[in-house]
Design a binder for these strands. Structure first.
Lengths: 105, 105
DNA sequence: TTGACACGTGACCAAATGGTCACCTATCGT
DNA sequence: ACGATAGGTGACCATTTGGTCACGTGTCAA
């Protein structure tokens, strides 16, 4: 559940798509998620495993199927401890640099 | 400046360390940053290039040296468009799952 | 002007990553 | 009991990634 695992898990677009899919409908099964992504079942399994090890999803078994649930806690953590630190203060202090960047292509 | 580049840039611990170093003291030069990280100059250069392409830092040349400045805009963007979506709402709706996760090792 | 200094480029390498497949176990419905 | 269904494992492969190095360019200072 470390910071590094969460960031690495979020670094892949497929994994973010899977989170979005679970955000749209929580508690989906593996084969259901497989249809949402251009990939075989095995690829999806690997991604889900990485997401689970990062703590971003939580699973529960019901019979022969495995249900996947979003877990907002780790993303909330990196938000509080990391992102807000950069996003919140002195955002205006460097806005000049931003506009300067936008002017020069 | 896409979302994917920003997430990928943030996925590496060395790169986050570099951002922290610039957070502590903005406008540092390459050789100054080199001393803060267990790596040769070339490794640092690659990381800085990735951070710059992601838009997370902005550079300015002064004579023979290159100054590196933090740019909070992209991180603010992923915060607003992505992280807050997951971190803000129904964080309490799944807290039961979190505590359940903490109970079962 | 000459040497030391700050940075850049391209080739190169080892390791991690993303993805597939053959095969296997467990559970459901009938 | 049986086939179909849902998921799991390990090996395997191509590509990307993180890092170093030899060498080259521009700039400062004496």
């Amino acid at each position: 559940m470390g910071v590094d695992e969460v960031f690495k898990a979020l670094a892949d677009p497929t994994r973010r798509d899977l989170l979005d899919a679970l955000f749209a409908e929580d508690g989906q099964t593996l084969t259901a998620l497989e249809e949402r992504v251009p990939m075989t079942r095995f690829g999806v399994m690997k991604h889900l495993r990485i997401l689970e090890e990062a703590g971003l999803i939580v699973t529960r078994k019901r019979g022969r199927e495995k249900l996947h649930y979003l877990n907002p806690v780790p993303i909330r953590l990196i938000h509080d401890r990391w992102v807000s630190k950069y996003a919140a203060p002195w955002a205006s202090a460097l806005v000049e640099l931003k506009s300067h960047l936008e002017d020069t292509p």
